[in-house]
């Protein structure tokens, strides 16, 4: 059984070479489809909810290398 957003993550990775020209923007992805890219996270989420309502979709910052979040304390897993 697929985990949440598994397909969207695969789609992002597949499209990344083409998306790199838009680094710094936010990609809205539903399933295996790139919907559009946006200047801000807020705009991407707004469009996602407008288009897909409460169905799953993913918004991701376009970056040549996967951005990493750093924490000086341990975090228990709620892993993707």
């Amino acid at each position: 059984m697929a985990t949440p957003l598994e397909q969207e993550v695969r789609t992002y990775n597949r499209l990344l070479p083409e998306l790199l020209a838009q680094s710094g923007r936010f990609a809205l992805i539903k399933g295996d489809h790139l919907v559009d890219t946006f200047d801000s996270y807020h705009d991407a989420m707004k469009r996602g909810y407008a288009e897909f309502g409460l169905e799953p979709f993913m918004v991701k910052l376009i970056a040549p290398a996967e951005p990493v979040a750093y924490f000086s304390r341990d975090l228990a897993a709620c892993r993707a």
Partner: peptide, 13 residues
């Protein structure tokens, strides 16, 4: 809530 994204994280562990 359903997740709407993923992020890679680094922690001490």
């Amino acid at each position: 809530l359903s997740p709407t994204g993923t992020v890679m994280i680094h922690t001490p562990s």
